[in-house]
């Protein structure tokens, strides 16, 4: 187990190095001049040449890369060409709302996957309908879900708001940066309700795709663990069916879906960009869309680096968690 954890952590470090290398190379491939990225647009002439030398862009690529990694490690992600702030500061502003959305969506998709997976694997009533839901959910682009959501739940029914994190001004910004939690801490119940209402629709749109993907994996692994000997044993001991499923079958079927969840987070980042744009959610996604339209490459690299790191670390955590839950994984 210890060897497994150490190995997994070592590969995590390698992956982070690869990630920075890819981002570094992309930066060199891109049409954005790094000097412009440091000094802002309009940097030309001797000042630019001096900056080029000072910042080391006339040195060999490998030296530049080491310098880049050093910068990243110290939280220096260059200047945004669009907002004119250091990208790191922008990330600190925009990351919390995105994480709030991401975690909520992840929670919803796990609940959804659990329902889809168990109901369809055990052929409970409604399984046929859920099959349709799964076919549709796997094929629906996030932007279709978002737009339909706005048209029905905002325009037609008027149940949910369509834009932003809250309809109030001057909301608390600390201590977690997650508006729902912050509102809870300040004991402002109307604000909690308001924030939850704003959160529901974007999170649900984001959750449907992953719920189906995870649900499918859960369905197939649950079906094979329902056929396994230990399930028959549990049943023949006279356990209630719910106990058989929940405590024996489901638990053994968890590892495939856990891995799928880790992978889905990578896709959710792309979905978040789309969803935040539709719902005007003030997070990293909206920031990325702004960066794309303004060809603000330093900002795009900064976001990709952070999102990529979150993804890689999360997947390492999933693997370790899985090994802890099921010792067979560590031996493979």
């Amino acid at each position: 187990m210890t060897t497994f954890v150490l190995k997994r952590l070592a590969s995590l470090v390698v992956l982070l190095v690869v990630l920075t290398a890819v981002m570094f190379l992309l930066q060199r491939v891109s049409k954005t001049d790094p000097i412009v990225a440091y000094l802002g647009r309009g940097a030309t002439g001797p000042a630019a040449a001096q900056a080029r030398h000072h910042l080391g862009f006339d040195r060999p690529l490998i030296v530049q890369y080491v310098r880049y990694v050093d910068d990243v490690a110290h939280g220096n992600l260059q200047m945004s060409l669009h907002t004119h702030h250091p990208v790191m500061d922008d990330l600190k502003t925009y990351l919390p709302p995105t994480l709030e959305l991401l975690f909520t969506a992840l929670g919803l998709s796990l609940i959804g996957a659990l329902i889809l997976g168990t109901v369809s694997a055990m052929r409970l009533p409604g399984a046929g309908l859920l099959r349709l839901v799964m076919v549709a959910g796997a094929a629906a682009p996030t932007f279709l879900l978002g737009q339909l959501g706005v048209v029905f739940f905002y325009r037609r029914l008027g149940w949910l708001p369509a834009t932003g994190q809250t309809s109030r001004n001057g909301v608390p910004t600390g201590p977690t940066g997650f508006l729902v939690l912050d509102a809870l801490f300040s004991g402002d119940w109307p604000l909690v309700m308001d924030a939850v209402k704003h959160l529901v629709m974007p999170a649900a749109c984001l959750a449907i795709g992953p719920a189906v993907a995870i649900g499918r994996v859960l369905r197939s692994s649950l079906m094979s663990s329902m056929d396994a000997d230990y399930t028959r044993t549990a049943r023949s001991k006279g356990l209630r069916e719910s106990a058989v499923v929940l405590r024996h079958a489901l638990r053994n079927a968890a590892s495939g879906p856990a891995q799928m969840t880790g992978l889905q987070v990578g896709f959710m980042f792309a979905g978040i960009v789309v969803v935040e744009q539709i719902f005007a959610w003030p997070g990293l996604g909206s920031y990325t869309v702004g960066a794309i339209t303004n060809s603000d490459f330093p900002a795009i690299v900064g976001v990709s680096l952070v999102a990529g790191a979150v993804f890689v670390i999360l997947n390492a955590a999933v693997d370790i968690f899985q090994a802890a839950a099921d010792p067979r994984v560590a031996l493979q």
């Binding site: 992956l15 890819v22 981002m23 990578g266 792309a270 060809s295 990709s304 993804f311 890689v312 997947n315």
Partner: peptide
């Protein structure tokens, strides 16, 4: 494996942004 462990969607976005839309 290196490619597979990096987030595909994010990589694709960064790649297109670098090359130009």
């Amino acid at each position: 494996d290196g490619f597979l462990s990096l987030p595909a969607a994010i990589l694709a976005i960064a790649l297109v942004a670098a090359l130009g839309p």
